[in-house]
Design a protein around this nucleic acid. Sequence first.
RNA 1: GGGCGAUUGGCUCAGUGGUUAGAGCACGCGGUUCACAUCCGCGGGGUCACUGGUUCGAAUCCAGUAUCGCCCACCA
Length: 716
Amino acid sequence: RTSVSDLEVIPTQETGTLWTIRYHLIDERSGLPNADETITVATTRPETILGDTAVAVHPDDDRYRALVGRRVRIPFVDRDVPIIADDVVDRGFGTGAVKITPAHDKDDHATGQRHGLPMISVLADDATINEVGGTYAGLDRYEARKRIVADLEGAGDLVGTKPHEMVIGRCQRSNDVIEPRLKTQWFIKVDPLAQSALQATRSGETEIMPARFEKVWENWLTNIHDWNVSRQLWWGHRIPAWYCPDGHVTVSSEVDGPARCETCGRGAAELRQDPDVFDTWYSSGLWPFSTLGWPDRTEDLRRYYPGTVMETGYDIIFFWVARMMFTGLQFMDAAPFRTVYLHGMVKDPYGQKMSKSKGNIVDPLEAIDRAGADAMRFSLLNGTSPGNDQKFSNERLEDGRNFANKLWNATRFVLGARPASIPADAPRREPDEASLGAGERWIRSRTAAAVDAVDKAMGEYQLAEATRALYDGIWSEFCDWGVELAKVRLADEALPAAVREATWWTLVESIDTFVRLLHPVMPFITEALWASLPHAADDPDLLIVAAWPQGSTPARDRATEASVEAVLDLVRRIRNARTEAGIETSAWIDAEIAAPGASNALVAELRPQLERLTRVKATILPADVARKDVPGALSVIAGGLEAYLQPREDPEVAARERDRLTRELGVVEGRLASSTARLADPAFSSKAPPHIVDGARRSHAELEAQAASLREKLAG
RNA sequence: GGGCGAUUGGCUCAGUGGUUAGAGCACGCGGUUCACAUCCGCGGGGUCACUGGUUCGAAUCCAGUAUCGCCCACCA
């Protein structure tokens, strides 16, 4: 039984009843209600008849124009009230005449104030009819409603009863129907606070993200009403107001209250503190500074106020964020944070809001039991966008779990692959650059790219973009290619120890970097893994306080990336050709590879890796051979590189190979056609930026070469 | 009544002007290669809700329409 603020009232769509009721007009001569002369009003709350103090019609409504100024008799309480004209009345609704109960309805209250109507409360605090209700006194509000309807019917004044779709205000917490009452309560005059909060966002002192919520913010703050902060509850900050026996109010910031009534001077002994407490959101609004020792000017307060980022759900932007802004600007003269980052809601698997009453709550502890806390955290971030809702699903949870598992196994592999020449407790070292191969340089560069991508994404609060960069970087690049390339050198006993050591330190460096980057998202597994990695002398004991990776360290090496990518592309295409030709996965076959010009040395260097990844025994052709006709071979074209695979004797293979080449030529020719049309359009070459046009020309030339090569093979 | 968001492969979602729109799951085929079957390889699958406009070029920008969802609002 407490008052609440407007925000805590949830308008609920419900089917109620609309009753139409006859009120009898007062005969001007006799002063008595006329049996025949009536006005019919519509109401959904017949029990409030007891508090009616007027009947209102629209001023331009011809049906009632003559009745304005007359009086009607309110039944049961025998009160005579005026018929007034007010343009809040909707002529089209009900009968066009509405009963006015200023003490029990927000609109009626406003109407009552405009017309100076008496405001008669008919309810007690426990929602029973009070003494004003005469024979209904003591009845619960709904019981009274039933009786009154029955009694109206008995009197012949109930005209109609019909179901009615309406909006009822219910309590956010208890779901009870909220009763508008006239009560003396403490309110906060909110307009000046709203103005300063608006000033903070308009000036850029505080930025709301995503930006679209700023409109919501603006709209709410510019139409805001005063805030009822009194709560008749047991728990909370007490209202700092004291009353003397004469009813004078003294507000004090002293813990023990004021020494005397500031109006009449009565001593503290006679003063009584207001029993009410503040709205819990009022207290929560103090959080940004009260947690830092305020009102004392502590070191923490100086250092940490204002904060940098407030991260919270968009559903409490008004409840909490706005109130923190109000109190922060009021008491600290500065907005409490520079950025407000609003996330979406986690809905149930069907997109419904989780609620206890619907019973569709997903218990995070169950998810954690099933997949781990890190997996859940990852799943809640990955594949979401700022401010948008997401559905919680077990599939997504499994993604996170599998990812954690992958990272765990990859780290386990790296630790187990340590060359014997490195002691188990060796401190972490940078790889020796002189001993790095193309694969290692590629890993280092791609890891640097991941650092840059994560930094950029985090800087823009694109958290899902950061997790995506980490997922791809760790799984699709480091594990799928980096580790696979490194395995060859790590396993090759013929190589100098320095080479194998450099390879291993490269893997360690990369894992170390990824684990640091992933730590904010998956703190537990990364902390555990990091503990098992070699550390440098200046590393702290725990990852949580370890340094964030420096962007582009080691530096990006785009030339290496491009040339190694070309080899990786060749690997993919060789695998594809093998599958399509129906060559058994495990069979080793021979291949010749044309790597013309500058690419020759790199392909030669990576030949062992290429062989392992494709299960071909490769011969690298001299650098001056760009293309070769190898009868009976499967031809694979990847950019400037070509490979010619020699399958075992199999008549079907040749036919499938022809099909494959024909299909490939079709695709290439299709692209070539659109590319030709594009380049032929003078508008494109004259209006598009030069780098786009150049790119289009380059890819066109490459497509032409591919098409020529394919045609040649099909002809041969 | 105002405002906001969503609409992209079977599912869940990324992608805000530039070649051929991506991922995970699901699906099909293959896999006892010394980290991982919670895995590896290959593949099929989308006229980006609709209509019109701007532009050399639109999933992306603009206008409108439809459907779904949310927020705000004093029709008894």
